[in-house]
């Protein structure tokens, strides 16, 4: 029920945008977001619920790198424990 699909804004008129979903053009309300032509938006039930920011999407990779760093001591401790047993 909470399925949402990303699409790209082609045209804006008032608070309604024409959004391209892989070739299908659909009218979408922009009442819940501040978005411009060319932005990617996440659309649920005919309404954009969030603007998708590429630079923030890229943060995922940074986050994973951070997590990997955080796990390094844990791995070292495990390896140490295994070496001792």
């Amino acid at each position: 029920m909470c399925v949402a699909v990303p699409g790209k804004i082609l045209h804006i008129e008032g608070d309604v945008a024409t959004v391209d979903f892989q070739g299908n053009r659909v009218r979408v309300s922009l009442g819940l977001v501040d978005a411009d032509i060319g932005d990617h938006v996440l659309v649920h039930a005919g309404c954009a619920i969030e603007v998708m920011r590429k630079e923030q999407a890229d943060e995922l990779n940074d986050l994973l790198a951070e997590l990997e760093e955080m796990l390094a001591p844990e791995r070292a401790a495990l390896a140490d424990r295994e070496a001792r047993s």
Partner: peptide, 19 residues
Amino acid sequence: CNLYPGVVHQEGNLKALAL
């Protein structure tokens, strides 16, 4: 942990929450 940062913000969608 937010592993969906391209879409989800810490504070959520403020316009939607106000509505």
